[in-house]
Amino acid sequence: MKLRTLERLTVLFSWAAGLLLLSAVTLLLGYLFVKGYESVNLALIFGEAAPLRAILLQERVFNGLFPAIVGTLSLVILSIVWAIPIGMATGIYLAEYAEPRAKRVLDAFFDVLAGIPSIVIGLFGFSFAVFLHKHYSDRIGPCLLISSIALSFLVLPYIIRTTQAALEGIPRDIRLTALALGATKLQNIFLVLIPKSLAGIMSGIILAIGRCAEDTAVIMLTGAVASTGLPRSVFSQYEALPFYIYYISSQYADPAELMQGYGASIILLLLCAILFSVAYGIRKGLTHFAFYRP
């Protein structure tokens, strides 16, 4: 029996679409690597400074990506530090405490929050900084602190959702074991449920880190600049990899600077790829780790 025309066309169309997407992405990444691989070396990161001295902050890096990398890292760490406690606590509340009606309402809030374009969150952060500047202190303007708070708003829904989903996914019998042994609700949450769902929560956190590392729209409004060196404090402006890439693409002065843009893109891409792979790997591995450690 023969497949009918519609069925044949569907098969053909699907393979064509798959091939097209694959080749588009291969082209995109291939182009980046072919054009940029030469620029990836220590000088790209440290310029003329000695790497060790630069890392120990004894020597300032002028012509390299080091400040942008440090900026991105500190940004990511700060944002995650704000987002994790409140995000996890909210996730726990939704999964374990909230009544159905409250849950529905809160769910709607977080769905909206998750959908808000990052530029709008950036705009919120920016105007909030301006507001503080005018009404409280001249020292506060767009800065690392404001950026990290705005970014934590951006990734909060990720952490809430993954925490909630991980907790709700725990089977009933595991949920009841400790309770049957006389554990309180809180003990059950912290001694059984959270360790059990750690893999899910961790992968959510790592995805959130990836999101912080790659986001450009929020930081371009809230304090990232093209060149300022290492951030001196959380109240200062800072450099960041994605913003640097954006800046170079429109403002590059000479081919050497453009090559730095390619190099920065490759580094950012690798960073995100690593974070993603870790997040997927962790879903399987971590639960065991947390449970069987003495």
Binding site: G210, T216, S265
Partner: peptide
């Protein structure tokens, strides 16, 4: 997971 800014750059 590919950063948006990289799509723009390329």
């Amino acid at each position: 997971g590919i950063p948006t800014v990289i799509y723009g750059f390329v």
